[in-house]
Design a binder for these strands. Structure first.
Lengths: 244, 244
DNA sequence: GAGTCGAATTAGGTTAACCTAAACCAGCTG
DNA sequence: CAGCTGGTTTAGGTTAACCTAATTCGACTC
């Protein structure tokens, strides 16, 4: 083997590692996983919208991912993750959420600006780094926004919670999780005391997706339906009538 | 503006941020900076070898970087960083070295495997993250291998040290810095006690790039010339004859 | 069962970043 | 100063990942 052949071989070997699951591919798999959780097969359009790509680009990428066995794909029929695809998606999701947790837990970030940082780091961090970060903050099971962190082995809690927008008045609920992507939304939620673990009572709901009035820590506040939809909650009592 | 035009605009705006200095470009700039430090203008071949790319690829990239004002380039004449290029190189170098320092200082990494991790993270970490990491470990001025960390403003110590391979017998020196890239070399250096801050006496040097015999912490050891060249040192006394 | 509409795909194009192989140039050697 | 040589560049090709515009398809309506 000549010297330049050695170098070529080294390049090929280095490329082999990453191979199929590139950074962009990880983003697709993550998006598809989340869409699937929400409702069955993920459509081309849904994926395109979530990633801010043109639908045609999505078709191209999902074809490639399907060829590599990461998702099941029939033209005009949407896609579903295979076991391998799901595993890859959860690996990326774990990275994302561990990174968010670490940044908040150790480096003094606030919960509203970790998403963007994690979005980039998740593609660059090694498994070792993620495990060390997780260990450093005590192996948390949820990230700062309440999203469950998959384990190293790819196990994750997929419980479906309902959002504040789905409830009628009279419910008492615990906030489980909030959307993690919009910094402004997160800052506002924090300012009115909505964060995982907090207890909320639903006082009133106006019709036609109107505002929802809540009681949080004895404060009364109304929020719009779109915002309410970002807040996932767990029932802790009452239904139409508060238990007493 | 239609909805899809908005989305296109958003994509363009997002792309604008990164724009010219992509991840690969950062690697080129870093390499060129280091080659320049070692000796004048960086040649296409030197850059190609350092980055394990084909020379033709290097020509292509340096043309692009030159077009964007990051380096001065005349065909067949090698390249030199412009002020903008130097700034970008130092920014990346700062990231790399802060990350290495942080991984060792806080996450329990050893010095032999931080390089690879930093090599990927340096392209993904935000300025804020780097600054927080640096603050968390007390704003170090050198990384775990002794390489100087540029400041946020792009100031860096460029003192040229000589290597162990450049010395004759009788010198007493302090180790300042070692090469950071080869894990095996680093593990071996650590095993024989060579790391920044340690004092070494040069006992003997065989001719024709032969082995160099050292005294480290009262241990006697011989190392080969290539390895000795990886160890940068600072004189602390003696020349041919030890001061007494 | 034909028409229609929106979603999905195909067709064709762009850019970045690599490659190999062939041409080219500079500077040194005889 | 002709010629060689090695470093450099040009020419031409590939792949990934995007794009727009045009076409096709599925499902639903009439």
């Amino acid at each position: 083997m000549t010297k330049s052949e050695q170098q070529t071989a080294k390049r090929d070997a280095a490329k082999e590692q990453e191979s199929v699951i590139t950074g962009p591919a990880e983003d697709y798999l993550k998006a598809i996983y989340e869409l699937e959780l929400a409702g069955g097969a993920a459509s081309t359009n849904d994926i395109a919208q979530r990633l801010s790509f043109a639908p045609a680009s999505v078709t191209g990428m999902i074809r490639r991912l399907a060829e590599h066995g990461l998702l099941a794909y029939e033209r005009y029929r949407g896609v579903t993750l295979t076991a391998a695809g799901r595993k890859a998606a959860l690996r990326t999701l774990r990275r994302h959420r561990v990174i968010e947790s670490y940044l908040v837990g150790t480096l003094g970030y606030r919960w509203d600006n970790v998403h963007e940082e994690a979005e980039r780091l998740e593609h660059a961090a090694s498994e070792e780094l993620i495990d060390r970060m997780a260990a450093a903050i005590g192996e948390p099971v949820v990230d700062p926004h309440g999203a469950p962190i998959p384990t190293r082995e790819g196990v994750v809690d997929e419980t479906q919670y309902c959002s504040l927008a789905d409830l009628g008045p009279g419910h008492r609920v615990a906030v489980v999780r909030v959307g993690d992507d919009d910094p402004e939304v997160l800052r506002y939620l924090a300012s009115i005391g909505i964060m995982p673990g907090v207890t909320i009572a639903v006082l009133a709901c106006e019709p036609f997706d109107g505002p929802i009035t809540l009681s949080i820590e004895n404060e009364r506040i109304s929020i719009g339906a779109p915002l309410a939809a970002q807040v996932l909650v767990d029932m802790i009592g009452g239904s139409e009538a508060p238990s007493h």
